[in-house]
């Protein structure tokens, strides 16, 4: 009985979510219109028409090599993202609970954020050569601070009253963390994770392009060398599509499951 109602509830939420895609489509259509206007003003050589770009992207996908390159870049971005999510969360939570660690890590963070990602790519290229490791390390260094700060914020801004409540009812430190704090930390952590995932893809492509390590970045470099604007735009569209697919398959469902109560709190008609 409760299983059935839980399934129905999820189906209803999925339906609402799919229905809300119309708003997203409207936004995309607006971008398409601007793009088309730019194409008509500047011509094919500067800005290929959106439909031609889509056709080029479809052709790339059909030729077969594009799927390989997409998979390679996505795997690299996900590996880097996974590493930075793990390390950032672990260290962020630890620093949130230990003020001394937080004070120590603040200047390190400022330093890391101050170094441009491109410098890390150069260093990683020298250290590891044009390999997966170069891309992963660059992502790790450039995206971890965001996750770290998100985790720290989650720990620091948690409601300590709930900790006291759990303690009164007999929860030890571990179960206080698992049952009460982890949920509050995740609320701050998820926006940071989404941001980190986006920058993981961007940094992966940039590192591939500069390190000549293949993948979408490599294909972009070739398109630039040939001044093939349609192919370059097609690769960009494919990369964006891959990022969106990963975000909506990997992160959004988990977040929706954890934040069901927020939707319940929203007044009727303002459900997003």
């Amino acid at each position: 009985m409760s299983l059935l109602s839980a399934c129905l509830d999820r189906l209803a939420r999925l339906g609402r979510f799919l229905w809300s895609a119309w708003a997203g489509l409207a936004g995309l259509a607006l971008i398409g219109a601007l793009w088309q206007a730019g194409h008509e003003a500047y011509g094919d050589f500067i800005l290929t028409a959106p439909l031609d770009t889509l056709a080029a992207a479809a052709r790339l996908m059909h030729e077969g090599r594009a799927q390989e390159l997409l998979a390679l870049t996505t795997a690299r971005a996900l590996a880097g993202f996974g590493l930075c999510a793990l390390i950032g969360t672990l260290f962020g939570v630890a620093a949130g609970y230990s003020p001394a660690t937080l004070r120590l890590s603040r200047p390190i963070l400022t330093l890391l954020l101050g170094v441009p990602p491109i410098a890390w790519i150069v260093l990683a290229m020298i250290w590891f050569g044009p390999s997966d490791l170069t891309v992963a390390v660059t992502i790790l260094i450039s995206a971890t601070p965001v996750v770290f700060v998100g985790a720290v914020e989650g720990v620091v801004t948690r409601d300590r009253g709930l900790d006291d409540m759990a303690q009164v009812f007999g929860a030890g430190p571990l179960r206080r963390f698992l049952f009460v704090s982890a949920r509050q930390i995740s609320a701050q952590l998820f926006p940071a994770l989404i941001l980190a995932l986006g920058s993981a893809f961007k940094v992966a492509i940039m590192a591939e392009l500069l390190a000549n390590a293949g993948g979408i970045g490599g294909a972009l470099a070739r398109a630039r060398a040939m001044l093939d604007i349609a192919e370059a735009l097609a690769w960009v569209s494919l990369a964006v599509a891959a990022l969106i697919a990963v975000e909506y398959i990997l992160i959004r469902p988990v977040r929706a499951e954890l934040e069901r109560w927020r939707e319940a709190a929203a007044p009727w008609g303002v459900k997003r």
Binding site: G161, L162, M165, R183, L258, E259, R260, W261
Partner: peptide
């Protein structure tokens, strides 16, 4: 407690 201290996600 003085405030309900309910977990908002449950």
């Amino acid at each position: 407690f003085q405030e309900p201290r309910l977990m908002p996600w449950a």
